[in-house]
Design a binder for these strands. Structure first.
Length: 423
RNA sequence: GGAGAUGUGGCAGAGUGGUCGAAUGCGGUAGUCUUGAAAACUAUUGUACCGUAAGGUACCGGGGGUUCGAAUCCCUCCAUCUCCGCCA
């Protein structure tokens, strides 16, 4: 969420930058500014009436004390009259504030100036590519067939027990999954991230804090009995740790990591993109989150990108890094790098990580702030990234490393799995 | 799940209808003293909104109500503690 004061001061720049997203912001921005004007003038009027009413109430008390009952009763009547006006204004103010809130929720983050203009993923900018060509001496099988062949993932069983998108990992498949989680967590720990095990369900306030609510409500599983939401990513509970928190300057940067299962309804997706591990309702992910001083957040973004690169290098996977164009950029993000690994049998790139700088967009909703040199409260910058999401990594590992003997486990993982071949 | 108690500023802790944004203590900041430090003393020390400013308004767990006036009374929700029950 953008701050209205910032919108007021940077109106033209914001509208200009929104062009990168193909978003015409002029109208909504003007509406916001107008509503904010209304808000201010109503507030002023209400404050004045309240001041008068407070004054009167004080007098009533004094008059009663000094025994001037008659005058006191007159004053009481005046006050009661004022009260009606105040309650009208209060209601008006509430409506304006709500309307303003709704509009502010609809306004996306401002893309960083380096974000390429564009409509779709075709306009994303390739910033890095590492190709270690995959050579097969056998016919390449997609991972869902490999999963069956080696009995390491059972999709049908998941359908029976829960539904589509909830696979069972079995035997070496389960152990490989656990190995990846431990590997990612150890790498994050080595990079200075504090490890967290957060709740897997969050309340409404947390959903709003990171921007899933109110808009993307349909993407989360909602436990209506207790009004709790299953987390779609660890970002939600972990970032919300810092909701309503004043960060001390010397605590920058705050670095936390968490492994969690993630739950997504993925309403509306179907077809071949959801085959096998490509898109699940429940999947595992290790997330890294940083809270940083605004001046250093882009530096930090680069460091996080390097961290994720390092993971993919160690896993020996062909991968590429894309800078997302405005049209592909998430609602809350100012700049995002996507990581994709090449999946040899599907012959396509699969997104496995997304590393973003949200600048103060999330912090504004979260009210996560620090005191600057002048003692003024300022919003922090938040960043996060997947490091990494497991299913597509697993898919690529299976497809790229298949041999006649079985599936080769990358060296970096062997100490975690305890085996170097799935067969 | 049942019964009871509690929820006040960074912390501790007063305040049970008016002059209370809130005593007091601790902590924080600045200063005096000191070669320096400690101690002592003095001042200052919440957040948000409006306003060039002076100043005004709101906030005493959240929400609602009573009243001219609520930290204080009522309703409701949430959290914590104690006891009982249940349980990995």
């Amino acid at each position: 969420m953008l701050q209205t004061a910032y919108i007021r001061e940077n109106k033209e720049l914001i509208i200009e930058r929104y062009r990168k997203r193909n978003f015409d912001g002029a109208e909504i921005i003007n509406q916001i500014l107008k509503l904010d004007d209304d808000r201010k003038s109503t507030q002023q009027e209400m404050d004045a009436q309240l001041a008068e009413s407070n004054q009167l109430s004080k007098q009533v008390g004094e008059l009663f004390k000094s025994g001037k009952t008659k005058e006191a009763n007159f004053a009481k009547e005046d006050a009661a009259h004022l009260k009606k006006r105040v309650s009208y204004l209060r209601e008006k103010q509430e409506n304006i504030t709500n309307e303003l809130q709704v509009l502010l929720y609809q306004v996306p983050n401002i893309p960083n100036e380096t974000v390429p203009t564009g409509n779709s993923d075709e306009d994303n900018e390739l910033v890095f590519e590492k190709n270690n060509p995959v050579v097969f001496d056998i016919k390449a099988l997609p991972h869902w067939e490999l999963a069956k062949k080696y009995d390491i993932i059972d999709f049908e069983l998941g359908v029976k027990v829960t539904g589509a998108g909830f696979p069972f990992y079995i035997g070496q498949g389960a152990r490989l999954q656990r190995a990846l989680i431990n590997f990612f967590l150890d790498e994050a720990h080595g990079a200075g991230y504090k490890e967290i095990i957060p709740p897997l369900m969050v309340n409404e306030a947390s959903g709003i804090g990171t921007g899933q609510l109110p808009d993307k409500e349909g993407q989360m599983y909602h436990m209506q009995v207790d009004d709790l939401y299953m987390i779609p990513t660890a970002e939600v509970p972990v970032t919300n740790m810092y909701r309503d928190v004043i960060v001390k300057k010397e605590d920058f940067p705050i670095k936390v990591t968490a492994y969690t299962p993630c739950f997504r309804r993925e309403a509306g997706s179907y077809g071949k993109d959801v085959r096998g591990l490509n898109r699940l309702h429940q999947f595992d992910k290790v997330e890294i989150v940083q809270i940083q001083h605004p001046e250093k957040s882009y530096e930090t973004l680069d460091v996080m990108v390097e961290h994720v690169k390092g993971l993919l290098e160690k896993l020996e996977l062909p991968y590429r890094v894309l800078k997302l164009c405005g049209g592909d950029l998430g609602f809350t993000s100012a700049l995002t790098y996507d990581f994709e690994v090449y999946s040899a049998a599907q012959v396509k790139w699969l997104e496995v990580s997304s590393v973003s700088n949200f600048e103060s967009f999330q912090a504004n909703r979260l009210k996560c702030r620090y005191k600057d040199e002048n003692g003024k409260m300022q919003l922090v910058h938040t960043l996060n990234g997947s490091a990494l999401a497991l299913p597509r990594i697993l898919a690529a590992l299976l497809e790229n490393n298949q041999t006649e003997q079985g599936i080769r486990i990358p060296k970096a993982l062997v100490s975690y799995t305890g085996f170097d071949l799935i067969n």
